[in-house]
Computed example of a mutant assay.
Amino acid sequence: MPHIVVYSPHLSREKKVACVAALTEAFCTTTGLAKDHLVIHLEEHSYENIAVAGKLLADTIPDIAVGEKPLQEVNE
């Protein structure tokens, strides 16, 4: 079975639904395979756990980290 892994920041449920629907449509359209054969795995990572060029994204792009804060509080 084909398997797509999506690494992303925390997403709302509505965004997850839209993301997997769009990925499924694109994959099935381009490969000709039925959607029943596709597995999509969403793996969410906080900007506190992602670094680019030796710096955490939460420090590099503080506006993004602020937007992520409410989602972290809900998950705690």
Rank of each mutant, 00 (worst) to 15 (best):
I50F: 01
I4T: 04
G32M: 06
T31F: 01
E44S: 04
D36M: 09
P2W: 02
S12D: 14
P2M: 07
V17R: 11
H41L: 13
V39C: 13
A26H: 03
S12T: 02
A18Q: 14
C19M: 12
T31G: 05
A26I: 00
A34F: 09
V20F: 04
T29Y: 06
E44W: 04
P9Q: 12
P2S: 08
I40M: 03
D59V: 00
H45M: 13
A21E: 15
V20C: 07
E48N: 10
S46L: 08
K69G: 09
E43P: 11
E25H: 01
K15N: 15
H41D: 15
L71Q: 09
L71W: 09
R13C: 12
I50K: 02
G67E: 10
K35V: 08
K55T: 08
V6C: 09
E43K: 07
A51C: 10
C19T: 00
A18C: 08
S46M: 06
T30I: 08
V52I: 08
I50T: 05
C19Q: 07
A58Q: 05
M1D: 13
D63S: 12
P62D: 11
G54Y: 02
E76N: 14
A53N: 11
Y47E: 12
H10K: 10
A21I: 05
L71S: 07
P2T: 00
A65Q: 03
K55N: 13
D59H: 05
E25G: 01
V66L: 14
A65D: 11
I61W: 05
N49M: 11
A65N: 08
H37G: 13
A53S: 11
I4G: 06
N49W: 00
E44Y: 01
N75Q: 15
D63Y: 08
L56T: 00
V74T: 06
A21W: 05
L38Q: 05
F27Q: 09
L42K: 02
M1W: 08
E25M: 02
L56Q: 02
L38P: 04
T30V: 10
L42R: 05
L42Y: 03
K55M: 10
I40W: 00
M1R: 06
L57T: 04
A18M: 08
A51M: 07
S12L: 13
H10E: 12
H3R: 15
L56K: 02
A22T: 04
H3K: 12
L11M: 12
T60W: 06
E44N: 00
R13S: 14
G67F: 01
V39H: 11
L38H: 01
A21Q: 15
H45T: 09
S8T: 04
V52L: 10
P9T: 10
